[in-house]
Design a protein around this nucleic acid. Structure first.
Lengths: 188, 188
DNA sequence: ACCTGAACACCGTTCAAGT
DNA sequence: ACCTGAACACCGTTCAAGT
């Protein structure tokens, strides 16, 4: 006889995000997520085909959040201000959910990586800022330079790779100014 | 009665690197490494206290190789040329051993991460180049900016995150020139 | 129609027993 | 003194059996 589901895809993804935030990717197991939604691990397969698919859903949920925040930031004042706002927004997100941020910039197996269209929503705001600063001809190159620097910096910060001391927020500010100056100074 | 070891720490680390290069970090298991050196997994614990410790040794081996190559590159001509050589050396390494490169810039648990002194040998050449380009006052900030950009870019390239097409080597070149221009243009 | 325990193939790791 | 198989606690995943 038909029985209503005791959980839902939304609840599973939300629980996945919570478990990820608390325990990191290696702690994001089917048994733990099941526990968080009040069901045994095998039952999760009624809603999700595999752990990889669950990871993808969690990643897409994270990207959607970031995209929303970046979109707001990209509207802040002149191009320089907008770029700064984008960078600080990303850093705030990374510090607020280190494991979540880690997941997005970690090399995931193909069946766990969010698809192209998901990323596009987060790339949009960055591309807009890059166009304003570097011109349409160099927008893509500039966006890649900015994203590479920011993601690299924040990953290193979260991993504790800045072991030589010094002022880490200051280094973030320095990088930001260097990139802005470079985009404005470079000939053609 | 005493029996000579059928393997050695060096052989285990070398096998670990080979397995890592072929199968990636998740394939770097004790059973597989054991197989590669002709011994069962439990015997590895005569030479290495844990899988984490083995990962650390493999990572340190990789860093030593990179440090050697970066040291050569940092001596190439004027500061701009030296920076370019450092960047291209790192990229060549990343492309030649994607899984190995990945391991170094992945967030490892504390008991698997190489210790500070290991990284110092690879940071040295970068710091030298950064000093020449940005002056001693900004050397550390500049080195962090360069490392963040290069590692971020190469991680994204290896992960296939550049899905919008375009010229990826060209984007690497663009980033390099932007950073050089930024370091040379910025006031103070 | 959903949920479950048992099972299978994998892990890292320990340890008593072999040589 | 090294090596081994068996075992334990964990995984992801499948599936027959329960309701």
């Amino acid at each position: 006889m038909p029985t209503p589901s005791r959980t839902s895809l939304d609840a599973i993804v939300a629980a996945g995000r919570a478990v990820l935030a608390r325990e990191g990717i290696s702690g994001l197991t089917m048994r733990r997520v099941g526990e968080a939604v009040g069901v045994r691990a095998p039952s999760l397969y009624k809603h999700v085909p595999s752990r990889s698919a669950l990871i993808r859903l969690v990643a897409q949920d994270l990207v959607a959040d970031i995209a929303r925040q970046l979109d707001d930031a990209a509207n802040a004042g002149d191009p320089r201000q907008a770029l700064r706002a984008v960078a600080f927004t990303l850093r705030a997100f990374a510090l607020s959910d280190p494991h979540g941020f880690d997941l997005l910039f970690t090399h995931l197996p193909a069946d766990a990586a969010p698809d192209t269209s998901t990323f596009a929503s987060a790339v949009g705001p960055v591309l807009r800022v890059a166009t304003d600063l570097a011109g349409p001809d160099h927008a893509l190159d500039a966006a890649r330079t900015l994203t590479a620097w920011a993601s690299g910096f924040l990953r290193m910060e979260l991993s504790g790779d800045f072991q030589l001391g010094g002022d880490v927020p200051g280094a973030f500010e320095f990088g930001l100014q260097t990139l802005i100056a470079g985009l404005e100074c470079r000939q053609t």
